[in-house]
């Protein structure tokens, strides 16, 4: 996967690129808006990570121009502007996701993965299957190894979100955004309690656990095998 990182803070860019390369991505760095815009039109990238505040062209203008030229490359905007309104402005400009600095590297990695895999699974799917766990999206029913499992509606939403991204790390922030529509981090780890309840529901009594905690990052639903 080929990523373009447009970031004027050289040190931050170096760290991010290093981490991303270690995670198996090919990363190009552009250090200002003009260079970034030039590279987006030249090269073909799978994903663009753009800082919002850049010399020459800011991140939002780059997204806008990209979209105007009919390119649908996913764009993740990084910003030091943290308020909800800034975030919404970024998404309205055509960004696909918005991350406020400072963020944990795991958070960035999870979101990149989510953006890259987006669309690989059609939204029209009515059934999701991970190992012997099966989700009926229409009937909102959960079955594991032929045994029906009772979950609340929020637990189902959580499970669906995880199941659609089976094998990918999902962060707490992503879950808060998707299931509760909250764009800030509560001080306590309220999500953990929901996850342990969900884990009790789907994994308890089964030999192979499906819902795993990824330390320092989040959770993943996968058949560990």
């Amino acid at each position: 996967m080929h990523l373009l990182l447009i970031e004027d803070d050289a040190e931050a860019a170096r760290f991010l690129a290093k981490g991303l390369r270690e995670s198996g991505y090919v990363v190009d760095i552009a250090s200002d808006g003009r260079e970034g815009l030039f590279r987006t039109t030249e090269g073909s990238y799978d994903l663009i990570i753009a800082d919002r505040q850049l010399p020459h062209f800011d991140g939002l203008s780059i997204v806008a121009m990209l979209r105007k030229n009919g390119k649908h490359t996913p764009v993740l905007i990084l910003s030091a502007l943290g308020s909800v309104d800034d975030r919404i402005e970024g998404l309205r400009a055509g960004g696909d996701d918005y991350l406020t600095k400072p963020f944990a590297f795991g958070e960035l990695l999870a979101r990149i993965e989510a953006l890259l895999r987006r669309g690989s699974q059609p939204e029209t799917t009515t059934r999701l299957r991970i190992a012997d766990l099966e989700l009926d999206l229409l009937g909102r029913k959960v079955v594991r190894a032929g045994k029906a499992i009772d979950v609340t509606s929020k637990e189902f939403q959580l499970l669906e979100f995880l199941a659609r991204r089976a094998g990918q790390v999902v962060t707490r922030t992503m879950l808060l955004e998707a299931v509760w529509d909250l764009h800030f981090d509560p001080q306590t780890n309220v999500i953990d309690v929901h996850i342990s309840r969900l884990r009790a529901a789907i994994d308890k009594g089964f030999e192979r656990p499906l819902l795993h905690t990824v330390r320092g990052a989040g959770y993943v639903l996968r058949d560990a095998g």
Binding site: D9, E11, A12, F15, L16, G19, A80, K101, P102, A104, F105
Partner: peptide, 10 residues
């Protein structure tokens, strides 16, 4: 924010 961000990355 910037130094905190760098500190965090390091």
């Amino acid at each position: 924010r910037t130094p905190l961000y760098r500190l965090r990355v390091r």
